[in-house]
Computed example of a mutant assay.
Amino acid sequence: MTEKRTISRVEPDTMALRALAHPQRMRMLGLLRIEGPATATSLAARLGLNSGATSYHLRQLARHGFIEEDEARGNARDRWWRAAHESTTFLAKDNTDEDAVDAGIAFAQAALNTQIEQMQRALARHVELAPEWRKASTISDFNIPLSAAQAEALVEKLHAVLWDAMESAPPLGETYETGVEPVTIILHAFPRPPESGGA
């Protein structure tokens, strides 16, 4: 059995959450978390940006503590950056600060847009996957009548299963054994909104 590890997490304040809500910054942080340290030049090439804009976004991420300089890799010419944490959490359950709620919603919207892009890329690649990876993939939704307390309890159970799997897996950005790849599991839970319009 794999030894469990501690997952480093950050719960950003309102200003940091607003800074992270920029789509390019979210993509950069995601790449640094999943693929490991990189330079502004290599990230710019991956994301189709110029290196000046990429450097600016990286400095903003560093300013708010999401990333840090990887001094072991850097030199006078190239500055390497790495993710400072493996996970970001937001929208604390006891949060009544409207500004913080607004910042959380802005972050959630940016995250949702990124997740939709990921799902579209995954779906476009689905036909190329080996049969075992097709079988291991899913696009599912479940509609279950629940009270707010029941929904919260269910989400907590699902989170516990996912955190357990993450704690038992090797860290992201490392070299994995053959057949192991980073798998993205996206969990959304919300009271179903009514359809707009209608007869």
Rank of each mutant, 00 (worst) to 15 (best):
M1N: 11
E3V: 09
T6K: 10
R9T: 13
D13H: 09
R18Q: 15
R18N: 13
A19K: 02
L20M: 12
H22V: 14
P23A: 06
Q24Y: 10
Q24G: 08
R27V: 08
M28D: 03
L29P: 00
G30C: 03
P37V: 07
A38C: 05
A38D: 12
A40Q: 01
A40C: 10
L47T: 05
L49E: 09
N50Y: 08
S51G: 08
T54P: 01
L58K: 01
R59E: 02
Q60T: 12
A62I: 03
G65R: 04
F66V: 00
E68T: 12
E68V: 14
E69H: 07
E71R: 14
A76S: 14
D78I: 02
W81S: 06
A83P: 01
H85K: 07
T88K: 02
T89D: 09
T89P: 00
F90P: 01
L91V: 03
L91P: 00
L91M: 15
A92E: 11
T96F: 04
D99A: 15
A100W: 00
D102C: 06
D102L: 11
A103R: 04
I105F: 10
F107V: 00
F107E: 02
Q109G: 02
A111T: 07
L112T: 09
T114A: 14
I116R: 12
L129C: 02
A130H: 07
K135N: 09
K135W: 04
I144D: 10
S147P: 10
S147I: 09
Q150T: 11
A153Y: 02
A153M: 07
A153W: 02
V155N: 07
V155C: 12
H159Q: 15
A160S: 14
V161H: 11
V161G: 07
L162S: 13
E167Y: 02
S168L: 08
P170L: 09
P171F: 04
G173Y: 09
T175W: 01
E177D: 12
E177T: 10
G179Q: 06
T184R: 12
L187I: 13
H188S: 15
F190A: 15
R192F: 04
E195K: 08
